[in-house]
């Protein structure tokens, strides 16, 4: 196996810190610009238009219309972009929990679908399964929480 086992050393801590800082950096790099853009949109009429347009669809999951921005960013870019949008919009804890479970099942579709294809699954079925799980879990969380 590729993983060394049974040997904890200073290197373990070092690798952990590096990977933790790496995640934080990857996150900051995407989250900060998204935060600026969404905050800017909040001061324009655009956010109101988006909210109105997507309110019926997002209502199925108990989410406000502007939450569509979070789902679109999470699926087309990655979770970090989605988190940037979540923290800049003012959402309730329940709304964040619903978005979190939906995004957990379905995110970063371009990159991750390519990986699944490499292993041999069809892109269409992988995307269908993931979107299906996201929709069901979103409805369930809205109902149960």
């Amino acid at each position: 196996m590729a993983l060394p086992s049974g040997s904890v050393s200073f290197n373990t801590l070092k690798r952990g810190l590096i990977s933790g800082l790496d995640v934080t950096w990857q996150l900051a790099k995407i989250m900060v610009p998204v935060y600026f853009i969404v905050t800017f949109l909040k001061h324009t009429p655009i956010i109101g238009l988006v909210a109105k347009l997507f309110a019926p669809l997002m209502g199925v999951f108990g989410l406000p219309g502007e939450a569509a921005i979070v789902l679109v960013l999470g699926n087309l870019v990655n979770l970090y972009a989605a988190v940037g949008a979540i923290v800049s919009l003012s959402l309730s804890l329940k709304e964040i929990a619903i978005l979190a479970i939906m995004l957990s099942f379905c995110h970063s579709l371009p990159v991750e679908t390519a990986l699944a294809k490499k292993i041999g699954l069809s892109a269409v079925s992988v995307i269908a399964v993931r979107i299906g799980l996201a929709i069901l879990s979103g409805i369930a969380f809205n109902f149960l929480l």
């Binding site: 993983l3 060394p4 086992s5 049974g6 040997s7 904890v8 050393s9 373990t12 801590l13 690798r15 952990g16 810190l17 990977s19 933790g20 800082l21 995640v23 934080t24 996150l27 900051a28 989250m31 900060v32 935060y35 988190v83 940037g84 923290v87």
Partner: peptide, 23 residues
């Protein structure tokens, strides 16, 4: 927000490396 997330994520990534190295 970045700070808030770093405080949680960094310790978890460190813990994961320990789990790996301890087999």
């Amino acid at each position: 927000s970045v700070k808030q997330i770093a405080i949680i994520v960094i310790p978890i990534m460190v813990a994961m490396e320990f789990l790996k190295d301890m087999g």
